[in-house]
Every structure is written in structure tokens, then in C-alpha cells.
């Protein structure tokens, strides 16, 4: 019985959201507000249950010595963030933000260099001729490598703005922008595929779980 009620509720919200395709209406607004409200409440609850309570509250109870006193630092930084809502003391929230920004910047720089820039540059150093097991494979593998190597070079040249894009640089940057357009096209195709997948699942839910037609 409970499952039937939840299926009807889910069907109602699905139809309410889809009704926006016809035009904006109160049902859509209602579903949207319920979604935003419940998501925010759920996230707050999750952060409390899975982070603040086990790491801080239980930490104060269970940890001993220095480990326990170290917890005062995140507690103070958390309180400072909340002080943002009290105008005379809101400046204190900058300390917490500075800590977060500093940490994120540090992690970001090392992560991007070590985990993205260097490996990706290494991966673009490829031989321009690859001997495959068959002639067809040789052509295909060689062609792939040529696209990767020259595609990378031409795309980077498109973003070289210190000289006017004329002559050889102009031709290279035109090839670069063409490669970018192909990339955007592929991404857009994937995006359509993703959105359609969502529609299929919702329609399947309505026809299968709700109406029992399939």
C-alpha cells in the first residue's frame, strides 16, 4: 500500500514538472518549491548526520589529549562562518573562507599539475606512424595519433593571441577552431543523449510503475 502511495506521489510530481513544457503554472511552481526545499533540508541533515555529529560531537566524546583539543579549530571556524549573518561580527567569517580558499587552491594546483597537466601532455607525445597488425589497423592507429598530436597543437595555437591570426598562424588557428567546433558538437550530442535518457526513464516510470501498461 505504501509503495502505491509513493508511486502516485512520484507520478504527480513528474507530471507537475513536465507540465512546464506546456506553460508555467502553479502545479509546476509547487513541485519546484517542494524539490528545492526538501533537497536543502536533506543536505543539511546529511551534513549533520554524516559529518558534524560523528566527526565533531562524537570526536569530543571519544578522542583524548591533543586529538580532542585539535577539534576546537574546526568548531571555531564553523562558528565563524555562521557569524556571517550577524553584521558586527560578520568579518570573522573571512577567516573560515580564507582557510577554505587557501586549502582548495593548494590542493587544486597540485592536483591539476600532477593529475591532469603533466599526464595529459605526456599522453599527447605520440609517434606519427604506428605499425599495426594489419594495413587497415596501421592506417587507423596512425590517423588517430596524427589527429591527437596536430589537434592539440592547432587548438593551442588558436589561443595564442600575441600575434594577429594571419598567414600560417591564421590557417593553423582556423584548423584549431574547427577541431574545437567538432568537440563542442560531440559534447552537445552527448548532452542530448543524456537529456533523452532522463525522459525515457520518466516515461517508463509513468507507463510501467504508475499505469502498469508495460
Amino acid at each position: 500500500m505504501t509503495s502505491i502511495i509513493w508511486t502516485w506521489i512520484a507520478a504527480f510530481f513528474t507530471l507537475a514538472i513536465l507540465s512546464f513544457l506546456y506553460k508555467d503554472n502553479p502545479l509546476y511552481k509547487f513541485a519546484e518549491h517542494v524539490y528545492v526545499g526538501s533537497s536543502a533540508a536533506f543536505t543539511i541533515l546529511y551534513v549533520w548526520v554524516f559529518d558534524a555529529y560523528p566527526k565533531l560531537v562524537m570526536g569530543f566524546r571519544e578522542k583524548v589529549g591533543m586529538q580532542k583539543y585539535l577539534l576546537i579549530i574546526p568548531l571555531i571556524l564553523s562558528l565563524f562562518i555562521i557569524l556571517r549573518f550577524i553584521k558586527p561580527l560578520s568579518w570573522l567569517s573571512r577567516w573560515s573562507i580564507a582557510f577554505t580558499v587557501g586549502m582548495a587552491a593548494g590542493l587544486g594546483i597540485t592536483g591539476l599539475t600532477q593529475g591532469f597537466l603533466v599526464p595529459q601532455v605526456q599522453a599527447s607525445f605520440l609517434p606519427l606512424f604506428v605499425q599495426g597488425p594489419t594495413t587497415g589497423q596501421t592506417i587507423l592507429l596512425t590517423f588517430n595519433n596524427i589527429i591527437i598530436v596536430f589537434g592539440t597543437i592547432f587548438t593551442i595555437l588558436y589561443f595564442y593571441f600575441s600575434r594577429e591570426h594571419k598567414g600560417l598562424l591564421g590557417v593553423s588557428s582556423k584548423i584549431g577552431v574547427t577541431i574545437l567546433m567538432i568537440t563542442f558538437g560531440a559534447s552537445f550530442g552527448y548532452t542530448i543523449m543524456a537529456r533523452i535518457s532522463l525522459l525515457i526513464q520518466r516515461v517508463y516510470f509513468l507507463l510501467h510503475n504508475w499505469l502498469g501498461l508495460v
Partner: peptide, 26 residues
Amino acid sequence: STAVSTPDYYPYMQANQVISVIGGLR
């Protein structure tokens, strides 16, 4: 990954940073 994110993850596969990528509903 979702199909939207898949093109962003293929370079990792090409660089052998991940074993493979399973993209979207397909």
C-alpha cells in the same frame, strides 16, 4: 559517467589514467 560528462573523461582513458569509461545510458 552521465553522457554529459563522458567527453570530459575520455582524455583520462587516452592517457591511461583510468582503466576505462562507461558512458551514459548506452
